[in-house]
């Protein structure tokens, strides 16, 4: 079960752990929007995302756009391998504009 890590939660920083998929999208949406509303600058730590699907990706797009609309700074950090993989596949890395550590998979 994925969730926002509430322990050692600090303002302006949310770590998503476990799944970022259709199964968790509904609750994550609210948590992310709340998190964004509460801070001027938000950092989303994706280092512990173990699974991500299109719904999860869509959610990230949504929150990024919402941040832009409300004029807040949002950044994603510490992309886990599955996140990197999907960003690479979708070609959306440029849209998010976060610095990524590109790891080329051996062919």
């Amino acid at each position: 079960m994925a969730n926002v890590k509430n322990k050692k939660q600090q303002p302006g920083r949310i770590a998503i752990t476990g799944e970022l998929t259709i199964y968790t999208a509904l609750e994550l949406k609210d948590q992310l929007l709340t998190g964004l509303a509460e801070a001027e600058e938000l950092e989303l730590d994706l280092s512990e995302v173990g699974e991500i699907d299109a719904a999860g990706l869509q959610l990230l797009v949504m929150i990024k756009q919402q941040a832009a609309v409300s004029g807040k700074a949002l950044s994603f950090t510490g992309h886990s391998p599955v996140v990197l993989d999907l960003l690479d596949l979708s070609g959306l890395a440029g849209f998010f504009g976060d610095p990524l550590l590109i790891v080329r998979k051996p062919l």
């Binding site: 999208a25 509904l26 949406k29 719904a55 869509q58 949504m62 929150i63 756009q65």
Partner: peptide, 15 residues
């Protein structure tokens, strides 16, 4: 990936 259809946060149904 075409993301243009994703609505604003309030209207978006994450599922």
């Amino acid at each position: 990936t075409v993301i243009d259809a994703i609505p604003a946060a309030a209207q978006m149904d994450p599922e």
